Simulated assay, not measured.
Amino acid sequence: MTDFSRPGDTGNIVPFDRRDVAEGYRTKERPPLKLLSYSEMEAMPEPEWLIEGVIQKQSTALAFGKSNSFKSFIAADLGCSVSVGQPWHGNAVAPGRVIFVATEGANGFGRLRIPTWFDYHDVPRDRRNNVFLYPKEIRLDVKDDVLALVSTMKILGPFALVVLDIFGGTMAGSEVEDKTARAWVHGIQFILRETGASVLTVAHTGWQDDTRARMHTHFWGSFDSRLRVEGNKAAMTATLTVERHKDADSSGQWGFRMERAGESLVPILDSDVKPSKSRNLSVKQNTALDALDDALQAHGVRKQGTEWPPCNVVLMEHWRQAAYRHGIADSENAEARKKAFQRIREVLQDKGIIRIYCDHVWRCFANSNNGN
């Protein structure tokens, strides 16, 4: 696993001393870093949209939802729209080549889902040449796999979008390991820099929490945009909600009914389909949940007995200390931090997001009226 941020760097941390500074850092192999002046900062361009309001150009986006929430169909809808430059349900699209990396179900994806979308939208065959499929797993935390993907994209020409479906099949390591997460994120950033394409990753929500994707917090925090998908399999409906854009207004909701077409499904915009009521967590409350994830990873244990859940739990004190490290309180005063943690804990418990028993805490299995 390689850190792509500096090609050729082994990633080893070497201690510096004053001689390094005195002798100078510049060598032929390591030219000085390019720093932007104030005027260059002012002249930096505004972010451009690949799909207006949904995915920006040369950015990373995450579409996450429960199993059977129709998120792969929505990802196909987004990607195919880009490949033909067709507005996505009224939102302007910048056209370009698209790669779908189907790490599971590639046959159905390539043979049914994509052709059905083109047929439904009456796209002529001569306009279907900008979409490509890689029907295998690809490990974006492995240097050779990333370089192979980038080389292929450069040979075939400029690409606008890479769709990774599904997240769990895009790494050699575990999705909950810090080492895997950091290598994967560096791999994605390398793809963005070298190809100029955006990357849309499709992921499942957590086993115990449908408010976020099942992944290490370093993955979760790395995406420029996060898009929540909720589906109702019985009603054949789905919604897409923008949860966050780092560099744009974080708003936007779309409701769809899933229309059968041939042997597949196509999302059709339907204003009557609404997302479930959001939990409306504050930044500090979400920070506390991230801290709980870290505490569960570092100190979580499985308890035996009917009163304990079928998942890891962690001591309240481990969570509290992790929350302090994450900065849940604006004050360094011990009493103020304690009160801030107490307030957040009570809110999360009242909302049913966490449970507490015998001075241990865990994430709840979330209940949703719109998922499956």
Rank of each mutant, 00 (worst) to 15 (best):
V131P: 11
T152L: 09
R125Y: 13
V163G: 06
L133D: 00
L133M: 02
I114W: 06
D145T: 01
G169F: 12
E194Q: 12
L200N: 08
M171C: 13
Y120Q: 08
D145M: 02
K136V: 05
L112G: 10
L112Y: 01
S174N: 12
G173H: 06
V185C: 04
E177C: 09
R139V: 00
R139L: 08
E175A: 11
I114M: 08
D119G: 11
Q189D: 02
V150R: 08
T195W: 05
V199L: 03
P135N: 02
T180S: 09
R125L: 05
R182L: 05
R139S: 05
I188E: 01
R182S: 03
Q189W: 12
T170R: 01
R128C: 00
G196W: 07
F159W: 07
L200S: 02
V199M: 01
W184D: 01
L133Q: 04
I155S: 09
G196D: 03
G196L: 13
A160N: 05
I155Y: 09
K154V: 13
V131I: 15
K136H: 13
N129D: 15
F132H: 14
G196Y: 00
G169S: 03
L161C: 05
I191S: 06
L147F: 15
G169N: 01
R182P: 03
S174P: 14
W117M: 10
A172Q: 10
I114E: 01
P158Q: 01
A172F: 06
K154W: 03
P135R: 01
F190R: 07
Y120P: 06
R139P: 07
F190K: 10
M153H: 10
S151D: 07
L149R: 05
E137T: 10
R113L: 02
N129T: 12
T152P: 07
G169K: 08
I188Y: 10
I114V: 15
G196M: 06
F167P: 11
F190T: 06
E175Q: 08
K136N: 04
I138Y: 14
T116G: 15
V131Y: 07
P158L: 00
T180L: 00
L200K: 07
D144Q: 10
I188S: 08
E175S: 11
A148M: 14
L149P: 14
L140P: 13
R193H: 15
